[in-house]
Design a protein around this nucleic acid. Structure first.
Length: 129
RNA sequence: GCUGCAAAACGGCUUAUCGCUGUCCUGAUUUAUCGGGAGGGAGGAAAGUCCGGGCAACAUAGAGUAGUGCACCUCUAGAAACAGAGGGUACAGCGGCAGGAAUGCCACUGUAACAGAAAGGGUAGCAGAAAAUAACCGCCUCAUUUUUUUUGAGGUAAGGGUGAAAAAGUGAGGUAAGAGCUCACACGCUCGGGUGGUAACAUUCGUUUGGUACAAACCUUGCACGUUGUAAUACCAAGUAAACUAUAGGUUGAGGGCUACUCGUCCGACUCUGGCUUGCUAGAGACUAUAGAGGGUAGGUAGCGUAGAUAAAUGAUAAGCUCCUCACCUCGGUGAGUAGACAGAACCCGGCUUAUAGUUUUGCAUUUUUU
C-alpha cells in the first residue's frame, strides 16, 4: 500500500493552476493555526493519489529566496512524514487539494513548524470524518 | 607580538536513517506505473543585469538619412569589451620648502564623458547701467548759461559699486580725459622649428594674435555600430478563423528584363515584409460562391549542458570531528554552546559592480618588548 510509504512522489504535488486558484478563492475551506494557514478543497484530480499538496511562503514575508526555500522544505518534509494519517481517512473515491501557507515574518524552528502542522492536520482529519 | 591597510586563497568535514531531482543498468506487469542497483546534484558572488561574446530569429539586401556608442598616451592578455598595468595633463585637498605677501616649486592622495567655444546659432536666474554690437556713478570736451549750478550732444572701459563671471597683467610713454593707442617685460592662443620622450607630453626659439563661461545642452570633428533576446527559436499535438478540405467559377497585360533590331521568351498591375525614405531583387497572399470537418482547453519534445527543472530538485533529523565563542581554574586543560557571514543555479562563457562572519599566506606602515 503506497499510503504507508514515506516517499513523496512528484504527482503528489499540486501544479494545476486552476485548482490552485479554486483553493484560495472560492470554494476552499481553511484551517488557521497561527503561523500556518491550511486550505483544502474537495475536487477531482488527475492523479491516483488521494491528495495533492502546495506549499507557499510569501515573498513579502521573506525577502531572500534562501529563507523561503528553507521553510518550504521543512514544511514539505513534515507533511511527508504525516501524510499517511490523512490518506487513511479519505474515502477511496474522494480527492483533496491541500495548500499550506506560512504567514509569519519571523523564521520558525523545526519544532514549532512540526507542532503547528500536526495540529492543523488533526483538525483536517476531524473535518473529513 | 598587537593594530591598520593592500593583494591573493579558502568559505566546514565524516557517518547513519528518512526523503527530493536527473542519468545509466535492470525486474515486473495493468504500458505508464510499481520495484531493485550504480553513480551525479549550488556559489564566490549562483545576486545586480552595467558591458562584451557565443547561439537563435528577423529578407545573409544596396544607397541615403535618422539614431546609438566611444573620445589623453603606451604596453599586456583576450574572441571582444566601460578589462588590467604604467604614464601624461587639468583641478581639488593635506604636508614640506622658498618668499614680506601675492604666489611659486616639490611630494603624496583623490577626482576627471580628458576632441572642438578661433564653424554656427543658443543659454547665462538674482543682483547690476550693462552678461557679450557694455556708459549708472565718475572723468573729459563742446553747446546752453553772467558765473556756480542745471540741461543737452559727444568722448572715455583708468576708478567705484553688483555678480559665479564685467572684456589681456605690470611699468613707461601718450591724451582734453582715457584706452593694446604705442613700447618693454610677463601670460595665453595660432602656426613652424630645435631638444628630451615609443607616445601623450615637457621644455625652448621664432612667428601671428588678444578670445567670458557652458558641448553627460544643440552642434562640429574623428572612429565604430543592423534589430530583438532562451518567455529567442524549431518540431509535434491542438486550433474558436482571415486557417484546412472538396466542388464550381475566375487568370486581364500597363510596364519592364534578356536582344543592335525584329521575332521569341521571361517577369509582371494590388497588399505585406527587420526606425524612416528610395532603387532593385526575393519571398508571402490572388479572388468569389457553396458544402464539409472542427468546440470550451493540456501541453509535449528539442534548444539544454558530466547539476539541471518547468509551481522549478540539491533537504530534514541524529551523532562525532575540527573552526569559533563564552565560563572556570591550572597556562594547558575542563565544561557549555555549537557552523553561526553574505547568500540559492533556470541557455552558456568572459569582465565589472555590490553584499560578506571567520581563517590562512604575502607585502607595507605604526607601536611595544627582547637581543
Amino acid at each position: 500500500m503506497m499510503g504507508t510509504s514515506h516517499t513523496l512522489h512528484k504527482h503528489e504535488k499540486l501544479s494545476h493552476k486552476a485548482t490552485v486558484d479554486a483553493i484560495f478563492q472560492k470554494k476552499g475551506k481553511s484551517i488557521f493555526k497561527p503561523p500556518l494557514l491550511l486550505a483544502y478543497y474537495k475536487t477531482d484530480l488527475l492523479t491516483t493519489y488521494p491528495c495533492q499538496l502546495l506549499v507557499s511562503v510569501g515573498k513579502r514575508k521573506f525577502k531572500l529566496a534562501v529563507h523561503r526555500n528553507r521553510i518550504k522544505r521543512q514544511l514539505t518534509d513534515i507533511y511527508r512524514q504525516q501524510k499517511h494519517r490523512i490518506y487513511d481517512v479519505i474515502p477511496p473515491d474522494d480527492k483533496y487539494a491541500i495548500g499550506i501557507l506560512f504567514l509569519e515574518k519571523t523564521t520558525p524552528t523545526y519544532e514549532e513548524l512540526e507542532q503547528h502542522l500536526t495540529a492543523a492536520i488533526d483538525e483536517l482529519i476531524k473535518r473529513i470524518r
